[in-house]
Write a protein that binds this DNA or RNA. Structure first.
Lengths: 211, 211
DNA sequence: GTCCCTGTCCCCCAAAAGTGGACTTGCCCA
DNA sequence: TGGGCAAGTCCACTTTTGGGGGACAGGGAC
């Protein structure tokens, strides 16, 4: 039996969820609270395997609660539960280590199914949320690799060090080369990248995912 | 009826998929191919609403095919289909705009269900893939932690321009200020960021999502 | 009121960065 | 088999930065 704790400020909904989970033969309710004010104590006492967390709660928000849970014990799976598809909240939840993001519009079947899959080590999102995640992802990550600047190995070495804030001297020391040599690498690199300063090169490298 | 085209080099599997899709009353098979060598022509002739794409095919890979489809017509939904949970391929697929990423271990029910949800505008991933995506996401995205450097508005302005490769002079010109003023901002900023060069400041700003 | 942060400006000076050559070594290739 | 060419090594010269000072007005904070 999977021990699960619910945080949900809406009384009827919380009772419904509790009933649904208790009725299933896979879950046993460890606890059900209308808010997360005393969450750490609740968790310590009940030791749930997972938590179903409403995002919008008075007092401690679901997001804060999520962070506290993951800090307390990252093994506890946390599924966020909300009516809104708010990009920022989705984004924050994911970054805070949420294991799932379900809309309240999901059916009981879907909910149970999803919770089981999370317990099995997966992560779940309703398709509309998944769409947003993928969109966000594609926007954030795509260090577009399209541009190929043909930097030589040495040039990339140098670039990596520049990104760490090294000066010509420090790079030279690090690579056991003369400073003058470094100057040339950088010079040629600037030509390839079409920049004229370290900061521009570093910015380009980080933004386009070179190195 | 949703028009769908299949690319799958494994003959029995392709035939099975075709049969399953044809048997459902939601889909109609627009085409089924063992490879994507002539994909653009295939798409032009059949005008499918969506594509189920095997990733590992001889000749044109599923990844390449995905990119071609999205370039040809981004409206066509593409669901990637594979046996492997390969991080790189997941990553690339997402960045190339895939609308879903299904493992071949999914049941027929799940497959049909998922394709329907994609057609409805969602995105789908098997839970294990979703887990990887979330992990990648949390790693890639915004290291924007609580680090607060208390940069003033002007300092942030300057920082933004430095990231664009501007020199002190250019920043001064852009903001209609004396170069000496810019020097002061940058000096104070360096102290706050605890760096000693433009490149280090730019790197820090980009890595930690300041500005 | 005084203290401290911001915004604006100034000087000086040493160090670092940016640019223009120049030389050697390989390697590709015609 | 000699020319071209990218990469690796180095020097000289000019500009830009970085870090050290100060100055002064306006605004909150205390």
């Amino acid at each position: 039996m999977i021990r699960i704790t619910i945080f949900e400020d809406n009384d009827p909904l919380r009772q419904l969820l509790a009933a649904v989970l208790n009725a299933s033969n896979a879950f046993t309710l460890a606890g059900a609270y209308p808010d997360a004010t005393d969450i750490l104590n609740d968790l310590k006492q009940e030791q749930p395997d997972m938590v179903l967390m409403d995002i919008d709660m008075p007092g401690v928000s679901g997001l804060q609660a999520l962070k506290m849970i993951k800090q307390f014990n990252p093994v506890i799976k946390v599924v966020m539960h909300t009516v809104f598809e708010d990009n920022d909240k989705i984004f924050e939840s994911i970054c805070a280590g949420a294991d799932g993001y379900l809309l309240k519009s999901a059916t009981e079947q879907e909910l149970l199914q999803s919770l089981l899959q999370v317990h099995a080590g997966g992560a779940i999102m309703t398709p509309s949320v998944a769409r947003k995640v993928l969109t966000l992802f594609a926007k954030f990550a795509p260090a577009k690799k399209g541009e190929e600047y043909n930097l030589s190995d040495r040039e990339k070495d140098v670039l990596r060090l520049l990104i760490k804030g090294y000066s010509y001297k420090m790079v030279a020391a690090e690579l056991n080369l003369a400073v003058e040599t470094i100057r040339t690498y950088i010079k040629r690199m600037y030509e390839k990248l079409q920049v004229h300063s370290m900061s521009a090169a570093v910015a380009k490298a980080l933004k386009e995912g070179l190195v």
